[in-house]
Design a protein around this nucleic acid. Structure first.
Length: 291
DNA sequence: CATTTCACCTGGTGGC
DNA sequence: TGCCACCAGGTGAAAT
């Protein structure tokens, strides 16, 4: 479930919690670890490897939470659909489906909980650079020209393309739908057929939606919380996602839902036209009453 | 090679 | 109340 804004919010809160003192915290020991959430599974004994490691930094790349340890060693946690990563006091109740507990130097605990177990802890070992090559650029900083180049190379529907982490990394189902609504682009439009203007609109809309979502600490539909256990608030500001049948906030026509590549896809058939330039929702005036 | 489908998991919801 | 089908923020392997 967590997409870029939720992951960024987790990272922000983790940094607040972990780096409040001058001395970087250490993982004293691993109190609990379910082995089958570790990648590569047979690679290394994470319990032993992590014991005594200092956490020098926590950052985000796409939907990954990257921990940088001593000697440039890194691992990252992907939250999958239902993962939570929190820092809690030792006496806090341990939730069901807790798969990792690391005891920190100040006795607090770093805990990873994930009921569906789609999340993973990936050990990267010592490396200068996270294996970036395999995933696409960051949506918050990509330029319209680069997005256009990448979209030109695929004939898939634009919605499907946005969800492809190799094409652009960090966008998931909620923010793909929200960004396309904001840009006034129909989800079925073919990626390589977007005009230059449409790609520019999409680039701007995507960044705007993601930034606003980060400001509201992400969307909590069910499980998602930040490292302090707090829910996000952006779900209240969704304009199309999970609003099937409800009136479009711009034109009042009912929001449509289709299934695309196995994923629920929400859009306004009036504001997001499949052919032609479409109507930029930013420009549409609410057409109330007789004017 | 590009694209689509499916499997991986658990839990919540709504219909009967 | 119980049972069951269906749905969910993701992604990588297998099939087409």
């Amino acid at each position: 479930m967590p997409e870029l804004p939720e992951v960024q919010t987790v990272v922000d809160s983790l940094r607040r919690l972990l780096f409040q003192t001058k001395r970087p915290p250490a993982i004293k020991r691993v109190l609990h670890l379910r082995d089958d959430i570790v990648k590569p599974p047979a690679g290394c004994d994470l319990r032993r490897t992590l014991a005594g490691c200092r956490i020098l930094d926590v950052t985000r790349r796409a939907k990954r939470i990257i921990f940088t340890l001593d000697d440039n060693r890194q691992f990252f946690i992907h939250l999958g659909m239902t993962g939570r990563l929190t820092v809690e006091t030792a006496d806090a109740t341990v939730r069901p489906h807790t798969h990792f507990i690391g005891e920190l130097s100040d006795r607090r605990q770093l805990r990873f909980v994930d009921p569906r177990r789609f999340g993973r802890i990936t050990w990267l070992g010592a490396c200068d650079r996270t294996d970036d090559g395999k995933i696409g650029p960051e949506p918050l900083t990509i330029r319209a020209s680069e997005l256009e180049d990448r979209l030109k190379k695929t004939k898939r529907a634009i919605k499907t393309a946005l969800l492809d982490q190799k094409l652009i990394a960090g966008i998931g189902n909620i923010y793909a739908d929200e960004a396309m609504f904001s840009a006034g682009i129909h989800p079925l439009k073919l990626a390589n057929e977007l005009s230059g203007d449409e790609v520019r609109r999409l680039t701007i809309a995507m960044k705007k939606v993601l930034r606003r979502a980060i400001k509201h600490k992400g969307s909590t539909l069910r499980d998602y919380v930040n490292a302090e256990g707090q829910r996000g608030g952006f779900q209240l500001l969704h304009r199309v996602y999970a609003r099937e049948g409800e009136p479009c906030v711009v034109c009042k026509s009912p929001i449509s839902r289709i299934v695309l590549g196995g994923r629920s896809t929400h859009f306004c058939a009036n504001c997001q036209r499949e052919r032609g330039a479409g109507v930029s929702t930013a420009k549409v005036k609410r057409g109330r009453g007789a004017t």
